[in-house]
Design a protein around this nucleic acid. Structure first.
Lengths: 220, 220
DNA sequence: ATATGTATTTTTGTATACAATTATACCATA
DNA sequence: TATGGTATAATTGTATACAAAAATACATAT
């Protein structure tokens, strides 16, 4: 008796479209019609429609009679999302420090080791690993939220973090910020390991602040 | 050139199912199959599926190979959602105080007048208007979030408020709380009218605290 | 030139058919 | 009785057909 279903075409299309919208491949105002997507992606309209309904529910597209209009994430949205994160992420981290299991710590450790690997690699051969580092950043935060044990914090913070992808990727192009971010993650991890809620909370807030500053400095 | 589409069958089914899940008509663990819903509601599976995808995106159902399992909102979720609201709602209210237009104030005034009408009515004839009062509470908060001018605050707070519907309705059954809640709304409204962010922030936080306490006292 | 009415095209909305997968029931066998 | 296998049923996943609504293009009249 399997618990979860396998990944359907509709799921894949949802993730692809979500990704493409959030990284800005489809820009604000652009209209996606079911027929065009159906032809482009080589599937029928049915799975396309289901993906569009989910994107609509996330408020990153808006259905109109002419098709689905891309909304995307603006600089103002980003600013507000950081404000929200700065008020919630510390609380989530404190809970995680209280509740995380050894298994959870091991999962986060693995993500950090990979993140360290790519940051070091860039140091050595100057290669661009910003995409990998950005994905590992996503995973670190997903685990941080998840092991808080609170569905509400997870459901609130994860979508916000996900929607920042375009700007986080840009931030990770700055290698000094990538290294700094890793070291902040390490600090949070140590606080979780010590099960120190206050420390985890403080470091998580500082991490969000520094991430915000590095992004807001980038473009005026 | 109309801007928005009319309400489709799929939309109606989504709203009906969402409501029925959030008020607890469909309980946690219950399995909703497309075929059964299709027969019960008298429509084909297509609009049902689209509604289910949206509910899945809200994390109030979970798709499995046996059908959609109802998740719903637990007491723990409620507690955490209040904690989140207490940290965000004040910030949203402060922004609303700064940004709200006369037109926005008029809309909120109208909601408050209706809310006062139903509360007074219960005073007079002891009738049960908790459903109407609960709906007007929803509208008041929706407008409060909306006129913050921030898509991120709106998108974050509205789903949380919506998910509390079952517990808010229960709270409004207590007439003393219904009257108290109205008076708190009036206070927030006056702060918005004066464009006083600090006051609006303080009152919004206190309102969330009192709402939480009244609900948490109810059942141990 | 502008406005209006109409035909055409585009696009979404819904129902249905069929495929694929998973769960269930039941029987046979050790 | 327990186990395994096979047929059956239940359920979701996808494609397609057709309906409905809206947008567009275009001709015509003023």
């Amino acid at each position: 008796m399997r618990e979860h279903k396998s990944i359907s075409i509709a799921d894949q299309i949802f993730e692809q479209l979500e990704h493409d919208i959030l990284i800005g491949k489809y820009q604000r105002g652009e209209i996606l019609t079911e027929l065009k997507l159906s032809e482009t992606l080589g599937v029928s309209r049915t799975p396309i429609r289901e993906a569009l309904r989910r994107l609509e529910q996330e408020h990153i597209i808006e259905e109109t009679s002419r098709g689905a209009v891309v909304i995307g994430i603006s600089k103002e949205d980003l600013f507000d999302m950081y404000e929200i994160r700065m008020h919630l992420e510390g609380l989530a981290a404190a809970r995680t420090a209280s509740n995380i299991t050894d298994e959870g710590l091991a999962q986060m450790r693995e993500v950090l080791d990979l993140q360290k690997y790519y940051v070091d690699k860039t140091d050595e051969d100057n290669s661009d690993n910003s995409d990998n580092i950005k994905n590992l950043d996503s995973q670190f935060h997903r685990l941080l939220y998840y092991f808080s044990g609170s569905k509400s914090y997870y459901d609130t913070l994860l979508p916000i973090h996900k929607k920042m992808i375009k700007y986080r990727k840009a931030a990770m192009k700055s290698h000094s910020r990538a290294r700094e971010s890793l070291s902040e993650h390490e600090g949070i991890y140590r606080a979780l390991e010590k099960h120190d809620p206050e420390l985890a909370q403080r470091l998580a807030i500082e991490h969000a602040q520094r991430a915000r500053n590095s992004i807001l400095e980038k473009e005026i």
